[in-house]
Design a protein around this nucleic acid. Structure first.
Lengths: 126, 126
DNA sequence: CGGTATCCGCTTCGATACTG
DNA sequence: CAGTATCGAAGCGGATACCG
């Protein structure tokens, strides 16, 4: 982030920082990754553990992560259908830096709480 | 991120992780913070250094960051107008974890590049 | 120079209904 | 159980014009 050295700009589509931020920008990707941290999950597990996610968005997110090589999808040919999702090795590596962000957030939750409260109180006025 | 211990869920609005992710989700916040890393900046500096940002979004982003206590805005009563922006102490602290994310992205740019290329080639097909 | 104001397209996302 | 299909509202964000 800090412009040490002579790295290219953060803003072009070719910039890796831009690319990882784009991953995080996806509303449901962090919740899904979080759910997958502790192991293999089934479709319904996500629906129960992630409050407010619709089937549409859940499927869309899982498909995206699958085609990104972050999540592996396994279909068992049984009735009723059984589908399992788990992190790929790359997916597990991706957890690391996000964890750092998460840890920092927990350590500074008081400041973040202030920001959030100020934002919501403003949006009520407007 | 990793659900070690018995931390509350990442998904509620009260969760600090959710809150910092919401900051990063804002399209123009990372570019603006990046620009501010190396010191005080004026309005026009952002417009020149951040390709593609409109005045509307730039102003909106700066106002947001100001009311969040992340950026400090100083107006000099001169003609022509002169306005300076800089990070607050909290803003500078906020740079740390994002830097970690950025460093990770640079170290894994090959994998990220693959993801990005796959995504864009798919969107052309669709 | 450093903004506001307005219009509007486009994506995002939630709700609902249906399926193998 | 694990999806797919369709619709429509909301709002993000770009373009343009104007202002103190």
């Amino acid at each position: 982030m800090v412009p040490n050295g002579d790295r290219p700009i953060l803003l072009s589509k070719d910039c890796p920082v831009r690319q990882i931020l784009d991953l995080v920008r996806d509303k449901w990707i962090p919740p899904v990754l979080y759910t997958l941290c502790s192991g293999t999950r089934r479709y319904n597990d996500f629906q129960r553990q992630i409050p407010g996610v619709s089937k549409k968005m859940l499927t869309q997110t899982l498909r995206q992560l699958e085609s990104d090589g972050i999540v592996e999808r396994t279909v068992y040919p049984v009735v009723p259908p059984k589908v399992e999702y788990k992190l790929t090795p790359f997916g597990e590596k991706l957890i690391e830096p996000i964890s750092v962000l998460a840890d920092w957030a927990w350590q500074h939750q008081e400041e973040l709480k202030l920001i959030h409260e100020r934002r919501t109180s403003l949006s009520i006025v407007t």
